[in-house]
Nucleic acid binder design. Structure first.
Length: 406
RNA sequence: GGGGGAAUUCCAGAGCGGUCAAAUGGGGCAGACUGUAAAUCUGUUGUCUACGACUUCGAUGGUUCGAAUCCAUCUUCCCCCA
């Protein structure tokens, strides 16, 4: 199966500007395509991961990827999919985030001569002259059209600043610039980027009279229509310091029934035939599929060793027999003991399992905590000696395990 | 530039000068049921040295025995006119 067909079969393609042309380019390894990453945080997250996978797939098929880091566009902030204005970031923050992105991307994509390229649009955007830019490309943008674009439409209700309104122009300019300088002929991006991307192809057509192409990747939504890769406490990060490999594994392990196959198809590199076979699975059999999904993704992001470890830990924790050495742990400091003792409430907050003593109190009262297989009372106190050896295993709810040691 | 309106806890959104740590919904957390799923039901959801105390209602001052509620100034946002 050729790459374009495979992408389609995996459900990755959302919209394309010209299917025939794109198929042609991609299948013959003639595409030089870019995906933009805005440096809004100091780590990539699951949403970016999809884009990285896509780059990898296309690179394996002989195409040339460009990872464009938005050091320049980050100064403006993308209004797409946002109901409020983004917080302005300082140039230092942006630079720091760019550096972090770069490190993480290198794990997935091969960069170097004749391979993938990494560019930063700060290089050309920051030196633009306002009047020159207006004269050069301003005439190619119809405000009427821009206002009709989905991403701005929503914001017409809540208000949209001129700053953000210019985001589309900057992104279009990127494409236009790279089309000329590095021969970039295609842009990929999340489906929410569609209108911004079209801005670029339009600009190239108007200015240069040439065709460039755009294709969007299906947004990874769960069956409730919410973006995946988000938890209550924020995004699921690729940086192991921000989301541990175990938590990463668990996130996917807990995918809903309705979403597992879709995720496997879109995110893993398993052969399509194998995935089609899984399609027949039903009910509790799907648990196996969830394990595969979690394992495969953890392996891609954190490496095989970490994936094994996470899977081992999870299996041991959930199939009874408790002792697990890979459990997240907190080492308690002497200062946290009062007269050689620590109360259950303080213990829970010290381990970061509860945000406050009040929360800890409620949790204990409601029976949501287990310490060494026993339900504690609010008044329970632990002596320093109780933590010797492997420490104490605390279970919060059904799925959160933690070890406290000295 | 002129006129009008809004700001409340994680979000949305009630809130009469005392009975407001603040209705209701969503979300979160936990319990029951399960398959580490979904749906459903129950409890809970500011902090603490916890039948009590303390700090919150955009910011700062003021009126009052008493302010989320009244007044003044400021900040931000929205709407209408130009």
């Amino acid at each position: 199966m050729e790459i374009y067909e495979e992408l389609k079969a995996r459900g990755l393609i959302a919209q394309v500007t010209d299917e025939e042309e794109i198929r042609e380019l991609v299948n013959n390894g003639k595409a030089v395509f870019y995906i933009g990453f805005d440096p809004t945080a100091d780590s990539l997250h699951v949403g970016h991961f999809m884009a990285l996978c896509l780059m990898k797939r296309l690179q394996m098929a002989g195409n040339r990827p460009i990872a464009l880091i938005g050091g320049g566009t980050g100064m403006i902030g993308d209004p797409s999919g946002r109901t409020d204005m983004r917080q302005m970031m300082t140039p230092e923050m942006i630079q720091h985030n760019c550096d972090c992105f770069k490190k993480q991307m290198e794990r997935f994509i091969e960069f170097g001569e004749g391979k993938a390229m990494m560019l930063n649009n700060a290089e050309w955007l920051l030196n633009l002259n306002y009047v020159e830019l207006l004269r050069e490309v301003g005439g190619c943008f119809s405000v009427n059209n821009m206002l009709r674009a989905e991403c701005y439409k929503q914001r017409m209700e809540k208000g949209l600043s001129f700053l953000e309104f210019n985001y589309m122009i900057m992104q279009s300019y990127d494409f236009y610039h790279m089309f000329q300088t590095v021969g970039c002929n295609m842009q990929f991006g999340g489906d929410d980027q569609w209108s911004n991307m079209l801005g670029g192809t339009e600009l190239i057509r108007k200015k240069l009279g040439k065709d460039a192409y755009a294709m969007t990747i299906t947004l990874l939504l769960n069956s409730e229509g919410k973006k995946m890769g988000k938890t209550a406490s924020g995004a699921v990060w690729l940086d192991p310091a921000k989301t541990s490999p175990f938590d990463f594994y668990q996130y996917w392990r807990n995918t809903g029934d309705a979403d597992v196959l879709k995720c496997i198809r879109m995110l893993t590199f398993l052969p399509l035939e194998d995935i089609d076979a899984m399609d027949q699975w039903e009910g509790s059999q799907l648990n196996r599929a969830k394990e595969i999904l979690a394992y495969e993704l953890t392996k891609l992001v954190h490496g095989e060793a970490e994936a094994e470890k996470a899977q081992e830990t999870a299996k041991r924790l959930f199939t009874g027999a408790g002792e697990a050495e890979h459990m997240p742990a907190t080492v308690l400091a002497d200062a946290q003991f009062d007269g050689g003792k620590i109360g259950i409430l303080n213990l829970l907050t010290a381990c970061g399992l509860c945000a406050s003593n009040g929360e800890a109190r409620r949790l204990v009262q409601q029976g949501g905590v287990t310490v060494n297989d026993k339900k504690p009372e609010v008044s329970d106190v632990f002596a320093r000696d109780d933590f010797s050896g492997d420490g104490i295993v605390i279970k919060k709810g059904k799925k959160i395990f933690h070890r406290a040691q000295i």
